[in-house]
Amino acid sequence: MSLRSHPLLPFAAALAGVGFLSLMDAFMKTAALMIGAYTATVLRALIGTALIAPVWLSRGPAMPSRAVLKLHLERGVVSAFMALSFFYSLTLLPLAEAIALSFIAPLIALYLARVLLDETIRAAAIGASVLGFAGTLVIVGGRIGEGQFDENAAWGIGAVFFSALLYAYNFIVIRRQAQVADPLEISTFHSGVGGLVLLTFAPFLWEAPTGAAVMPLVVSAVLTVCGSFLIAFAYARAEANVLVPTEYSGFVWAALFGWLFFREAVTVPTLAGTVLIVTGCWLATRPARPAENLSA
C-alpha cells in the first residue's frame, strides 16, 4: 500500500490542516490587534492569493467551467465574511473561547442541510443540538458569572455566532467543490475571491498597515494556503462525516497558542462548554441507524 492511498492519509491531512489554521488564527489575532480586523483580513487574503496563484497558473490549468466557477465564487463570498467576523471576534475574546463557540457550526449545518438539501434530521441530532446549545450557555454564563460579560464580549460572541452560521453553510459547499476542482485551484479562488469581495469596503474600513504587522500577515497567509490545501486534499478523498471530528482538535491548538502568544488561560466554563458542544457534534455526526431518521 502506497502512502498516497493509505486510509489514514485524509484524516492526517485534515488534522494537520486544522493545526495550521489554528496557528494562523493566533498570528491573525496579533495582526488584527495592530491594524484592525478588516485590514488584516483583506491583506491576508491578497498575500495568500499572490503566493498560491502563480503555483496554480504554472501548471497551465484550464479555466474552470461555469458551474465550477459558481462554486468558487459562492464559497469565496461566504468565506470572506466568515473570516472577517471571526477575526473581529478574536480581537474581543480569548482564542480558545472563540474557537469553542465556533464549534456549533456542524450542528447548524444539520439544519441548513434540511432546509437547503431536504435532508432528514435524525433523532440524535435533536439531542446533539440541545447539548450544543447548553455548551454555549455554559461558556457565556461563565463570563457573566465572572463579571466579564461587557459590551465587547457581547459583540465578540455575536461575531462568532455569525461566523459559525456562515461556516455551517461552508460545510455544504466545500464537499461539492472538492469533488470538481483540485486543491491548488480551490485555494487560489478561495483567497482571491474573498480578498476582492472584502476590498470593495476599503473606502469605509481600511486602516493603514504598520510595518510590524507585515510578518504576522505573511505568516498567516502562508498558513492559510497550507491549511486550505490540506483540507481540500482531505475532503476530496474522504467523506465529510469522517473528517468533521478533526475540527475539534482546533480547541487544543487554540488553548496552546492562546497561552503561548497572549498568556490566555482556559477557564473551567470554557472547557466544560467545549465538552458539551463537542459531545453534541459527535452524536450528530455518527452514522445513522434506520430507526433514527425523522422526517421533518
Results as ranks from 00 to 15, higher is better:
residue 1 M to A: 13
residue 2 S to Q: 12
residue 3 L to A: 10
residue 4 R to C: 06
residue 6 H to G: 09
residue 6 H to I: 11
residue 7 P to E: 08
residue 11 F to N: 08
residue 12 A to N: 06
residue 13 A to C: 12
residue 16 A to W: 03
residue 18 V to L: 06
residue 22 S to P: 00
residue 24 M to G: 00
residue 25 D to M: 11
residue 26 A to H: 01
residue 27 F to K: 09
residue 33 L to V: 09
residue 34 M to A: 14
residue 37 A to H: 11
residue 37 A to D: 13
residue 38 Y to Q: 13
residue 41 T to Y: 00
residue 41 T to M: 03
residue 42 V to H: 02
residue 43 L to D: 07
residue 44 R to W: 03
residue 45 A to Q: 13
residue 45 A to Y: 07
residue 47 I to F: 05
residue 48 G to I: 05
residue 49 T to N: 10
residue 49 T to G: 14
residue 55 V to Y: 02
residue 58 S to I: 02
residue 60 G to Q: 07
residue 62 A to I: 11
residue 73 L to Y: 00
residue 77 V to R: 02
residue 78 V to R: 05
residue 80 A to S: 14
residue 80 A to Y: 10
residue 80 A to N: 12
residue 81 F to L: 13
residue 82 M to R: 09
residue 83 A to M: 12
residue 88 Y to I: 05
residue 90 L to I: 04
residue 94 P to R: 04
residue 96 A to S: 08
residue 97 E to K: 13
residue 99 I to W: 01
residue 101 L to Q: 01
residue 104 I to K: 12
residue 108 I to H: 05
residue 110 L to Q: 12
residue 110 L to T: 15
residue 112 L to A: 06
residue 118 D to K: 15
residue 120 T to K: 15
residue 120 T to E: 12
residue 123 A to E: 11
residue 130 V to T: 09
residue 131 L to M: 13
residue 132 G to S: 12
residue 136 T to S: 09
residue 141 G to H: 07
residue 143 R to Q: 15
residue 143 R to S: 10
residue 146 E to P: 02
residue 150 D to M: 04
residue 153 A to L: 08
residue 154 A to G: 12
residue 155 W to F: 15
residue 157 I to S: 01
residue 160 V to Y: 03
residue 164 A to R: 06
residue 173 V to I: 15
residue 173 V to M: 14
residue 173 V to E: 13
residue 173 V to N: 14
residue 174 I to T: 12
residue 180 V to G: 00
residue 182 D to P: 02
residue 182 D to S: 06
residue 182 D to T: 05
residue 183 P to I: 10
residue 189 F to Y: 15
residue 191 S to V: 05
residue 196 L to A: 09
residue 197 V to N: 05
residue 200 T to C: 12
residue 202 A to S: 15
residue 205 L to A: 08
residue 205 L to R: 08
residue 208 A to H: 03
residue 209 P to A: 10
residue 212 A to T: 02
residue 217 L to R: 00
residue 218 V to P: 00
residue 219 V to E: 10
residue 221 A to S: 14
residue 221 A to T: 11
residue 223 L to A: 04
residue 225 V to Y: 00
residue 226 C to N: 06
residue 231 I to K: 12
residue 231 I to F: 09
residue 237 R to V: 03
residue 241 N to H: 14
residue 247 E to I: 07
residue 250 G to H: 04
residue 251 F to C: 04
residue 252 V to W: 08
residue 253 W to V: 04
residue 256 L to Q: 01
residue 260 L to N: 09
residue 260 L to M: 14
residue 262 F to S: 00
residue 263 R to V: 07
residue 263 R to W: 05
residue 265 A to P: 03
residue 272 A to L: 15
residue 272 A to H: 04
residue 273 G to N: 07
residue 277 I to S: 02
residue 281 C to I: 05
residue 281 C to Y: 00
residue 282 W to N: 10
residue 282 W to D: 09
residue 287 P to A: 10
residue 289 R to I: 03
residue 291 A to M: 10
residue 292 E to M: 03
residue 295 S to G: 09
residue 296 A to H: 08
residue 296 A to W: 11
